[in-house]
Amino acid sequence: MGTLEALLTGSRYEDITTRPRHAATLKFSDDGAQGVLTVTDEFTSALATTTDDQIRAVAHPWSQTEEFWGLADPADLTELLQDLRDLAVRATQHQHHLYCWTSL
């Protein structure tokens, strides 16, 4: 999510990757197919305060990144980001962190 964080916050990707909670591994399955990674607090805070207009503005450039091979639908990403924002709002209200579960 470093690329998305860069787009959303205006921070340099290189700076984001040095943050302590950027994709720090908490647990991975023995075969490496599933795992849980940390999400930076800066990203959580930025998501929690992002407006719908800002989400729509970020969805298009994010859809063009190599993460999606340039083929993602910005409308789908907008919905995803709105859901992530709602989760980030709840997390910040309870002083919790966000985590990313991955599965290959």
Rank of each mutant, 00 (worst) to 15 (best):
T50S: 08
L104I: 14
I16G: 03
D86H: 11
A91D: 04
R12D: 11
K27L: 11
R19G: 03
L87K: 13
L80E: 10
H97C: 09
H60T: 13
Y99M: 00
A57P: 04
A46G: 08
Q64A: 14
L37I: 09
P20F: 00
Q82A: 06
S29K: 07
A75K: 09
L71T: 00
T3A: 03
T18L: 11
S45F: 02
G32P: 00
T51C: 08
A46Q: 00
T25V: 13
V58G: 06
F43N: 01
T40I: 10
Y13G: 09
L104C: 14
T51M: 02
C100Q: 14
D31K: 02
T17I: 15
P74T: 01
Q95G: 06
M1K: 06
D15S: 14
E5S: 15
G35F: 03
E5H: 15
L84I: 00
P20W: 04
L26A: 09
R56D: 12
A48E: 09
P74L: 00
R56T: 07
Q93I: 04
P61G: 05
P20Y: 05
V58T: 07
Q54C: 05
D76T: 08
S29L: 07
P20H: 08
Y99R: 01
H94F: 00
L71W: 06
T3E: 08
W62Q: 05
L71C: 11
L84R: 11
A6C: 04
G35W: 03
A88T: 10
H96E: 13
L77K: 08
E5A: 15
A57N: 11
